[in-house]
Structure formats: C-alpha cells, structure tokens
C-alpha cells in the first residue's frame, strides 16, 4: 500500500497548491457577487479535505473490507493485474512522446509510419511483412484519405516536396 500512501500525500500537496493558486487569481475590475476566485477556493477546500481523508485511510486503517463489498455490489471496474511490464511501458511512452514531437516537423505520414514500425519492432516482429503494409496504409493511406476525402490537411512536414 506504499503507492497509495504516496498518492494520498501527492494529492494533498496538489490540493494545497491549487488552493494557494486560488488566492493569486486577480480581482476583476468589476466587482461581482461571486468573483472568479470563489469557485476555485471552494473546490480547493473540498479537495484538501478529501485528500486528507485519503491520507487518513491509508495511514491509519488496514485496507477496508467494505470497499470490496461495495465493488461487488456496483460492479466497479476490475482491478489491474499486479504484474507490470515497466520496460515495455517506458519504451512505448517514449515512442508516444517522440511521435507527438515529430507530428508536425516530420509530418503526419512519416511520423506515423516510423511510430508504427518502431511499435511493431518493440511489441511483436513475427509478422513484420504484413504489418509493414498495415503501417503504410495507416500512415500514407490515412493521410490521403483525410486530404482528398475529408478535406482535412494533416501536417506533411519534411515530405512537402511531394506536393510541389
């Protein structure tokens, strides 16, 4: 339950920061019954109280039994399995960030193609020939579909010369 404890403290810090931020909201030139800072302040207080409750639950009591009963009644989403493949997650996250950064500069088709192939390389290379074709359709195919059928111009980036 260490993660839960850290989370509860993080939320408390977040709530404090949010609440403090509410005090820095500027007064509007025109006074109103309820200024722009009132709603955030209320939320901030609620958030702080709730995160302190969260802290209390995690630090004082043993994991509560009633919570699981509640889950059985209302069918909460199933818990994730405890096994986590951090390496795959980390690589794929880096890939997503790279994809985001390259989206405009490399352009949609090239960035997507590279993201797809890199993803296939990381996750499963067994059917790479089939997947290569899928990657081309997903990148260049979708680009042309958007450009000519939906009339949306996705960024073309370094491949600009193709459309000169």
């Amino acid at each position: 339950m260490k993660a839960q404890r850290i989370a509860s403290l993080t939320f408390t810090a977040l709530a404090i920061a949010y609440l403090a931020g509410a005090f820095f909201i500027k007064e509007p030139p025109l006074r109103q019954q309820l200024g722009p800072d009132a709603f955030p302040k209320t939320i901030g207080v609620m958030m702080l109280v709730l995160s302190l409750l969260y802290v209390r639950i995690e630090f004082q009591r043993q994991p509560v039994k009633e919570d699981d009963e509640r889950a059985a009644i209302i069918g909460a989403e199933e818990k994730l399995s405890d096994y986590v493949d951090y390496k795959t997650i980390g690589i794929m996250l880096a890939l997503m960030l790279g994809y985001g950064l390259a989206f405009e500069s490399l352009g949609y088709p090239l960035a997507t193609f590279l993201m797809f192939m890199a993803g296939i390389y990381v996750l499963d290379l067994k059917h790479w020939k089939r997947d290569l074709i899928i990657a081309i359709i997903a990148s260049f195919g979708i680009y042309f579909l958007f450009r000519y059928a939906l009339r949306v111009n996705l960024p073309i980036g370094v491949l600009k010369f193709l459309f000169r």
């Binding site: 939320f11 931020g21 500027k26 969260y54």
Partner: peptide, 24 residues
C-alpha cells in the same frame, strides 16, 4: 469524490468568461 474535485479543478483552468480574469 476526489476524482470529481480534480475534474472541477480542471474546468477552472483558462479565462473566466464572466470576469475576463485568467486562472491557472
């Protein structure tokens, strides 16, 4: 409930339309 307050907090980001003051 904590999740709800986070959602509410996110909704306050940006210009407040009634006063024109920017928040967060």
């Amino acid at each position: 409930l904590l999740a709800t307050t986070i959602g509410l907090a996110i909704s306050t980001i940006g210009i407040d339309l009634q006063s024109g003051v920017s928040r967060y």
